[in-house]
């Protein structure tokens, strides 16, 4: 049996040790609970958004469509949009509608043939490359394909991770 200061030191150490074990056993699950992504099954489906034949050539078309999205414990059907650009008789790509700076909706300016963002005046070329302003990277694109004359879009891929349409112009 310990006595005096030894006993005191042992007790203090035991109090701290037991406290640390409890904190860890609660803290680790709490952190994974908060930080790890939910196991949602996001089955990316292809959605028809436009007839390729009806799209204007050399000019983007803003297309509004609805899609299903897993939103926490719900699956919501929501409206969203894409800027679809026809690049040939069997080809097109689709840009995601949010500016890559802080997410404002940008628009096509016919006079200057560029996309401009109303928020902080970023501008992008028709293929999404940054022309001016604070936007850090080219516009994001939807995964897209053309099947039987219909343009279909899938998930949005960041222009940075895909690397497909280059970085800053």
């Amino acid at each position: 049996m310990l006595q005096g200061p030894d006993r005191r030191n042992f007790l203090v150490l035991a109090i701290q040790g037991l406290g640390a074990v409890i904190t860890g056993a609660l803290g680790v699950p709490a952190l994974t609970y908060l930080f790890s992504p939910a196991k949602t099954k996001n089955d990316a489906t292809w959605i028809d958004v436009a007839d390729l034949a009806k799209l204007p050539a050399g000019e983007p078309a803003e297309i509004i469509f609805s899609r299903k999205r897993v939103d926490g414990w719900k699956v919501v059907t929501e409206k969203t949009s894409a800027w679809v650009v026809k690049t040939g008789e069997t080809e097109a790509f689709a840009l995601a509608p949010a500016c890559t700076h802080l997410g404002c909706a940008y628009h096509w300016k016919q006079e200057s043939k560029e996309f401009t963002c109303p928020c902080h005046a970023s501008s992008f070329s028709i293929d999404g490359k940054v022309q001016a302003g604070p936007a850090p990277r080219a516009l994001d694109r939807y995964e897209s394909r053309v099947v039987n004359g219909k343009v279909q879009v899938g998930r949005v891929v960041s222009s940075e991770s895909s690397g497909a349409n280059g970085g800053k112009a």
Binding site: P29, T32, Y33, S36, K39
Partner: peptide
């Protein structure tokens, strides 16, 4: 069912 550690919490 879907949040990691959710059942434990």
């Amino acid at each position: 069912m879907e949040v990691t550690g959710g059942r434990l919490i």
